[in-house]
Amino acid sequence: MKPSYQHISPTLGELVWNAEPTDELLSIQFAYLNYVQTNFSSTILEVRQGFTRLSLLWKNLASQQEFARLVETLYLNPEPLPEKVWQVPVCYHPEYGQDLEDFVKSKNLSVAEVIQLHTQGLYRIHFFGFLPGFFYLNGLSPKLHLPRKNVPALAVPAGSVAIGGKQTGIYPIQSPGGWHSIGRSPLPFFDPKQTPPVWAKPGEQIQFVSITASQFENWKDADTKNFLQ
């Protein structure tokens, strides 16, 4: 799990792992992330995480070159991942998941089977991307994989829970989107007025919990508080 270092521009480069994104890889990425932030805080401008890369934006070429040399002989122990599991309520109903019925047909499953498969998994948050507050989650059952839609929807409502390819995710804000919406959560996922604007951190886990349409419709702030403890 030792990464290589790839220069991109004089001030941009990335740590490269040619491996599948897993918990093990994430633990190693965290080790490098913490190492860089601790030891290069005066010369690094930004560290950005992806499934198989850590992108590093440097103040200048010299600091990038120094790190690139050092990384060749660097051995870091994996960081333990957080144990926190967030429960995320989802109403799996065609009213809230515009593509639920088509999805069920494409996969030749019943709605109950889709709910069962989607709620039984634990999903690891790897990083935020695509939209403000959008979790990149790992851990979707292969039985639920489905290529993205050919024609993206123009407006996917905030809170929509969707499947695209091998991934599942939650739209934190309304957006165009090419994933299949199978339900919606009543929780808020992004609020720029809060610091930080998101309530979960990379490395933590998400578990989806099925709720009924009437629970969704009667959702209260107090219910949100209960879930986001």
Binding site: E14, R48, R53, G129, F130, G165
Partner: peptide, 8 residues
């Protein structure tokens, strides 16, 4: 498509 990774 590749694994999702940082862009700038």
């Amino acid at each position: 498509d590749l694994p999702t990774n940082p862009v700038f």
